[in-house]
């Protein structure tokens, strides 16, 4: 096993202020950035705050920015960096900082609550739901989300414009709207909730300019833009900007609903 000393810059501070602090720290073969942060914590800065849990890329806790790119600390191998490179680790820059590498991601939970939940279909009780695999494939891709909020962090709509946080749900929760709208048993439409329309009107879908950063940073490789956001935009177009679809639904005398 070979080891070397790496140079790290880790942001330390809180909402009152802070800055990048230099560390020289041992790195061994096979380690990830979270291992090094833990070694800094164990040997040089015992009060360094970092949020982590599973160390397996499944809990979504250790989100941070490494050399300016939103990533999971536990899934970023040290071997991707040059040995002479200085590695900079900062907290997520789209959310308020609490301390060191820990941010307040409460914005995301507030947005999660704004998305109306799955509406159970009439006449089916627990245990009676039956769905074909091809009908749930699309929604299941979005269920891989580990809620690390890297997509929310990188999205320039809120990252660069704090004022948009009120109107814009962010890619993770627009994907949630898409997941429910594509769910074969979601009865929202029958109950009077038009998710295609509310995606635009209440969750700020129009703010998305599909620059695909959410897809680029997703550690679960969910195609957020191509499979959730753009299909949702097209569904909103069905409702709001396509007179042919509107006319077709009138001629057939039924709502332009589930097919």
């Amino acid at each position: 096993m070979s080891s070397y000393e790496a140079r790290f810059k880790v942001w330390r501070g809180d909402v009152a202020g802070g800055g990048l602090e230099d560390f020289g720290i041992e790195v061994n073969d096979g380690e990830v950035v979270l291992d090094i942060i833990h070694r800094i914590q164990a040997t040089q800065a015992p009060d360094l705050a970092v949020r982590w849990n599973c160390k397996a890329g499944k809990c979504g806790s250790c989100s941070a920015e490494i050399n300016g790119r939103p990533r999971l600390l536990c899934m970023t191998r040290m071997s991707v960096f040059m040995r002479e490179e200085t590695i900079t680790v900062t907290p997520l820059r789209a959310f308020p900082v609490i301390r060191d590498l820990v941010t307040d991601v409460g914005f995301n939970y507030a947005k999660a609550r704004e998305v109306p939940a799955f509406v159970p279909p009439d006449g089916l009780g627990p245990g009676e739901y039956r769905m074909m695999q091809e009908d749930v494939d699309r929604s299941q891709e979005f269920r891989k989300c580990i809620e690390c909020f890297l997509c929310q962090d990188t999205c320039h709509v809120v990252r660069d414009h704090e004022e948009n946080k009120t109107a814009f749900a962010g890619p993770r929760f627009l994907m949630r709207v898409a997941e429910l709208d594509m769910h074969p048993l979601d009865a929202a439409e029958e109950s009077g909730l038009d998710r295609k329309k509310t995606a635009q009107d209440e969750h700020g879908l129009g703010y998305c300019n599909i620059t695909k950063c959410c897809t680029e940073v997703c550690p679960e490789s969910i195609k957020i833009t191509d499979n959730a956001l753009i299909p949702l935009k097209e569904r909103a177009v069905d409702r709001k900007y396509d007179p042919l679809v509107w006319l077709g639904s009138k001629i057939r005398r039924r709502p332009s609903g589930p097919a």
């Binding site: 942001w11 501070g13 909402v15 202020g17 802070g18 800055g19 990048l20 920015e65 050399n67 300016g68 790119r69 490179e85 900079t88 900062t90 907290p91 820059r93 789209a94 959310f95 308020p96 900082v97 941010t103 990252r159 660069d160 414009h161 704090e162 004022e163």
Partner: peptide, 19 residues
């Protein structure tokens, strides 16, 4: 407003740290 330099976010003056 103020984006990444917003008062409640980590105090980093650089607009990005990508290398």
């Amino acid at each position: 407003s103020g984006g990444v330099r917003n008062g409640t976010r980590a105090a980093i003056t650089a607009p990005h740290l990508r290398t």
